[in-house]
Design a protein around this nucleic acid. Structure first.
Length: 280
DNA sequence: CCAAGGCCTGAATG
DNA sequence: ACATTCAGGCCTT
């Protein structure tokens, strides 16, 4: 039943976009906001709440996307090696908190913190004899004290997290609006949130707001660009400044096209996999 | 506009 | 053991 466009669930989950997923036996269980998703070995996804979910982005024309981003040998190799890799469409609030926490951190610690946040502030649910904690609602985190949030191991990001949650409850940040906005408008709004810079904003947009032209530039992607794309995108300064980031992003959209976010995911996965395998 | 330094934390390194 | 470094940035100076 597998064809070229079957979703590779394991690799997609283990590509740095989601953190609250665990595999037991053959099935994956994941927290997505107020929902729990189960993916069986055939790659069939089911919502525990029987809610229709766009998690797999089934409406994307993946064939067209892959064709569109396949501009050179490097990206073609990545696409070929990880052809089932997909970008998910996850719960925006959870995604936002996840990537605020991600700054200056690593996957294992992000996961630990998110689990603690869920346990402390989320609702416990039991399904199929397994216990889960949903991701807390924005109101819950907005009302929590900074000290309480700090017990989840997030350190200096605690006030950011609280303020971010408050901005969601007060509708200063409105995810539905942002989903319908273009890249620049969504980014301008997200950047008002403390703890959300260029990179974090791009992650939130790519992974939860349907902005496939977002291209998160973290230290890994910079290394990748320096290694494989020094001709296409030359990086002048040591640290990527605000201006540099903007210029680079424009060049990247020019080069890879409107689905460049997918290019990022393939390249990132390939390079991380070559370096070390420390995923969920 | 750019560069430098501080920031919580815990796993890895020496 | 214990100190230091470093990790998938952001913010302030």
């Amino acid at each position: 039943m597998k064809n070229k466009f079957t979703i590779d669930v394991d690799n997609s989950i283990n590509s740095g976009q989601v953190f609250l997923w665990q595999k037991n036996e053959m099935d994956w269980y994941g927290i997505d906001g107020q929902n729990i998703l189960k993916i069986n070995q055939n790659g069939e996804i089911k919502s525990i709440k029987n809610v229709k979910t766009e998690f797999f982005r089934k409406n994307d024309d993946i064939q067209k996307i892959i064709k569109s981003i396949s501009k050179d040998k490097t990206i073609k190799k990545a696409v070929n090696e990880y052809e089932g890799l997909r970008i998910f469409s996850q719960d925006p609030f959870q995604c936002m908190i996840s990537f605020i926490i991600s700054s200056n951190s690593n996957i294992q610690k992000i996961k630990n913190s998110l689990e603690k946040i869920s346990e402390k502030f989320g609702t416990k649910v039991k399904i199929q004899n397994k216990e889960f904690f949903l991701f807390p609602k924005p109101e819950k985190i907005a009302k929590a004290s900074i000290e309480e949030i700090k017990t989840c191991g997030v350190g200096y990001r605690a006030p950011f997290i609280k303020e971010a949650a408050k901005m969601v409850t007060s509708k200063k940040v409105n995810f539905e609006y942002l989903k319908n906005s273009d890249y620049n408008e969504a980014k301008r709004n997200l950047r008002l949130i403390p703890g959300v810079g260029n990179k974090v904003a791009d992650c939130i947009m790519l992974f939860s707001l349907n902005k496939l032209d977002a291209f998160p530039l973290d230290t890994w992607m910079i290394k990748i660009l320096e290694k494989y794309y020094s001709n296409e995108f030359q990086i002048e300064t040591k640290t990527i400044t605000e201006k540099q980031y903007e210029i680079l992003h424009k060049k990247i959209v020019d080069y890879f096209g409107p689905y460049c976010g997918y290019a990022q995911q393939f390249l990132f996965k390939m390079e991380r996999e070559n370096y070390e395998k420390k995923w969920l």
